[in-house]
Design a protein around this nucleic acid. Sequence first.
DNA 1: CATGGGATTGACT
DNA 2: GTCAATCCCATGC
Length: 193
Amino acid sequence: MDALPAAFYDRPVLEVARDLVGCELVHGPTAGVIVETEAYHQSEPACHAHIGVTARTHVLFRAPGTAYVYRSYGIHALVNAVCEPEGVAAAVLIRALEPVEGIDLMRERRGVHALDQLCSGPGKLTQALGIGLGLNATDLVTGPLRVAPRPPGWEEPEIVAGTRIGITKAAELPWRFCARGSRSVSRPRPPGF
DNA sequence: CATGGGATTGACT
DNA sequence: GTCAATCCCATGC
């Protein structure tokens, strides 16, 4: 398994968000194909880094290919891939996967059996893959958590764009990207799905 | 130092 | 559809 190079992330965040759909997220014995992403950029207020560099947000300004993992609603860990050149805060939130490897372990961690429900949400997939806050600021190219190219045998996904989920600011931007027809995409599904 | 909101989920009505 | 759980951290006094 070869990880995507850092140069993959050193591009406009909207391009990276679209291209990450179909790639594989790997952590230890568990892995899944990314079927849903969202883009965030410092220029818009939904991005944590919109306010600037803080103890929480400084990771978003780091080199492309860095993992940004943070706690949401006090409960869930959400995982992002930092993009664009160092000093520019932008990231792609990984929102859903189709399970590929370590499925029994995912079922054990999730306490759920149905394949479609193992990784069909940003908090669900981190639980299924065992991704915790300790992985914040690790390197997605060489670290324990990696992103690999689309696995052999997987068709190139057809991308459907929609608005981002669960935010209150800049909610109208169509910066959510889904693999059309995937049963692991979270709800609500975008128009045209 | 106290307060309040958030890129969510699952259980319940 | 509604709501609680639960914690990091930004903001304001």
